[in-house]
Every structure is written in structure tokens, then in C-alpha cells.
Design a protein around this nucleic acid. Structure first.
Lengths: 199, 199
DNA sequence: TACTTGATAGATCGATCGTTCTAATGTCGA
DNA sequence: TCGACATTAGAACGATCGATCTATCAAGTA
């Protein structure tokens, strides 16, 4: 076997998952082929279907689980970056902007990139995507509750913050400009300030 | 020829554009086949390539132009529905929620549904998508300027409003629940109120 | 040494992809 | 009636799709 310069993952399975996540982020679900995944991972089709007998759907869910952890970590870091919850939420948007800019607007949120194609088509994928969104929303809500925001208000606020983050990322990618995310950072800050001041 | 029960468009070209728009909304770009478009439009491949010799990309751009008008009309109606700019912007989110719910979470924004797949791949499509976003942003910004909001502030606010609308629609479609859009409506209202009160 | 099992390798399947092609059909004015 | 042109019709192309298949290889156990 010719072990060339390979990605981070050591095992074949890890390399496949990593490659899937990267390709789904850039090309979406329908735009990514199983053979392309195998090629990119330095694996063969046989290995791929050995580890993921249920095929592309199982592959996508596994990739999401992996990628979701990255996003959770990014959010955690940003949310803990300041004592001021407004600054903390704004930092989330700015972190996304930075990551996006550094990758030439290619590496965005996997959920956003490969979501709508499967709405009403693959329940498995739709549920997994929904779960990731719920985790992120709860993460933001918890940060707000820590500032004495009432639980229901915290949930609603977190929901809209997440909507704005995802939407601003889409706009930033389409326009190849981080302005939507940077602008959103400012408005999300004032939004959180308002919510917190209300108790 | 068997003229069955056909869609709204009279001419073949119109039926093709309408079918393309409907399918792109539901399935995205890569998920929609040219042959499927022709079938859905009640046209043949020959007719399709006669009117759209540049193929799928040209087809997508034409469909966007058509669909963009629909969205522009929806925004105009919502933005004119109230003298209060906050209520007007909130009405945009509620209109999107209603349309989405009525179509069982299928008919969303074409731009959002078929955008990310072509980022960094088809400049033609990316430019067209960008233009639609600019039109909608200007539409919202104009509504804010009419309430004596300073032009730069109006632009930034409109940008974030658009981000939130698109993002909330994505979340609503994934979760099959209009809560993200309805919640966003409330927060966008308070956001606009804050912006307007600052002069 | 035999046997089992996890993993790798890639040919092959039928279906569909976007596109091109030729031929036929309909609709005009001359 | 005739050509000119717009439109329709669908076969065909090479490529790729997701998935299945058999065969081989490597490591561990008896």
C-alpha cells in the first residue's frame, strides 16, 4: 500500500469521516459523490462500504457528528471569551466570519450546507441535523441563563441568535464578504444586551 | 400532443421556468435534473435546450429571476402592511412562516435552497444570487429610511434582518416547525424599534 | 498448518447525469 | 405551393451516480 501524505485521521474509518465532512461542507449532499469521498480519503470503495454498510446517508450522519463537535467547541470558546454575554454572542459571529474568510468562503457550517436538500427526503438525516441545531441552541441558551435570563426567554433568544448566525453565514458565503456576519455580530450583541437588561 | 392539466404558464418557455423554480426550491441545484425539469414542465429535452442553449446554469438563473419577483412582492406586501416599521418587518417573517407551513415546509426561498452548492463553482449563478439578495436588502433598507433611519444604519439593519429571515427559514424547514420564523418575527420587531428610536 | 475474521481492492451493475444530435412537425409570409 | 424558420421530439453520447459483488490480503487463534 502506498501511504502518501494523508489527512489527520489515523484509521481508515476516521479518514473517511473527515473527508466526508469536508466535502459536505463545500459541496453539499447531492454534490458529493461516494467515490469522491473514498478517493479524497485515500480509501477504496470496499473499505468505505465495509465501515458504512448503509451507504451515503450513514456516512453523512457520521460526518455531521464529527463536525458538530467542532462547531460546539467553537461556540463554547466564543461564549466563554467574555463575561459580558453580549460580547460573548458577538464573538460567535466573529469566529464564524474568521473561519469562513480563512478558508476562502469554503468551510462553512455543515448543517447549513447539506440541510435543505434532504428536507422531506431523508428522515434520518433530517433528525440528525435537527439534533445538532438543538445542541447549539441549548448551548447558547445556557450561556444566557447564566446571566439570569428566564429559561423560556433564553430559549427563544438562542433560537433567533442561531437563525441569524446561520443566515449570516449563508449570506457571507454567497457574497464572498464577511460583512453580513460582522454586522450580525453587532446586532446580536445589542439584542442580548436588551434581553439581559429586562431580567 | 396531449395537453393535460398544465401549470400556470401558457408558453412552453414559461412552464419550463416555473418548473425549474419549483424544483430548485424543493431539491436544490444538484438535486434537480434537467430531464426532471422537462418532464415536470410537460416539455421535451429538445424544447428545453432550444430556449436555454446554455443549459442548466442558464435555466437556474432564469428561474431565480422569476422567483425573485415573487419574493420581492411578498416583501413589499409585508413591508406595506403596517405604518409601524417594526410590525412591517415582523410581518415579513410571519408571511414566510405561513407560506412555508402551507407547503409542508417544501417551498422556501430559492436562493437559500440552491445557493451554497454553487459557491466557488458557478460564478454566473453566484452573481445572480448575490443580486437577488441585494434587491431584497435594499427593499428593507428603503422601508427603514422612510422612517428617518440614517442610510448606513438602514443598510446594516436590513442586512441583518435578511440574514435572520434566511436563517430562520432554514431552521424552520429542518425542524418542520415555524417556531424559528415566528420567534424571529418578534425579535426583528424589537430590533427595528430600537434602530428607529435612535433616529 | 488450517480456519476465522476484519479489512482492502476494484470490477461491475443499472440508473441517471447534462448535453448534443438529427429528424420531424408546425406556422408563417411570399 | 414553396421555402424559411421556430419549435418539438426523443435517441444517443460519455460520464458519473450509489450500491453490490467477488476476490484477495493480513492478523489472530486453535
Amino acid at each position: 500500500m502506498s501511504e502518501g501524505t494523508e489527512g489527520a485521521g489515523t484509521t481508515t474509518r476516521e479518514r473517511i469521516v473527515d473527508a466526508t465532512a469536508a466535502l459536505l461542507r463545500r459541496q453539499g449532499y447531492d454534490g458529493t459523490g461516494v467515490k469522491q469521498i473514498a478517493r479524497e480519503a485515500g480509501a477504496t470503495l470496499g473499505s468505505l462500504y465495509h465501515f458504512f454498510p448503509d451507504g451515503k446517508e450513514q456516512l453523512a450522519v457520521a460526518a455531521l457528528r464529527r463536525d458538530s463537535e467542532n462547531y460546539t467547541a467553537l461556540l463554547r470558546e466564543a461564549l466563554d471569551s467574555s463575561d459580558d454575554p453580549a460580547e460573548a454572542v458577538a464573538a460567535c459571529a466573529l469566529s464564524l466570519a474568521e473561519r469562513l474568510r480563512e478558508s476562502d468562503w469554503r468551510d462553512g457550517c455543515l448543517v447549513a450546507a447539506a440541510a435543505l436538500e434532504n428536507v422531506g427526503r431523508s428522515p434520518t438525516i433530517q433528525v440528525a441535523w435537527k439534533e445538532s441545531l438543538a445542541v447549539w441552541q441549548e448551548q447558547i441558551a445556557a450561556r444566557l441563563r447564566a446571566c439570569d435570563v428566564r429559561p423560556e426567554i433564553a430559549d427563544d433568544t438562542a433560537c433567533t441568535v442561531l437563525s441569524t448566525l446561520e443566515g449570516a453565514e449563508v449570506l457571507s458565503r454567497i457574497t464572498s464578504d464577511d460583512k453580513p456576519l460582522r454586522t450580525a455580530a453587532g446586532y446580536l450583541g445589542t439584542l442580548v444586551t436588551t434581553v439581559c437588561s429586562l431580567g
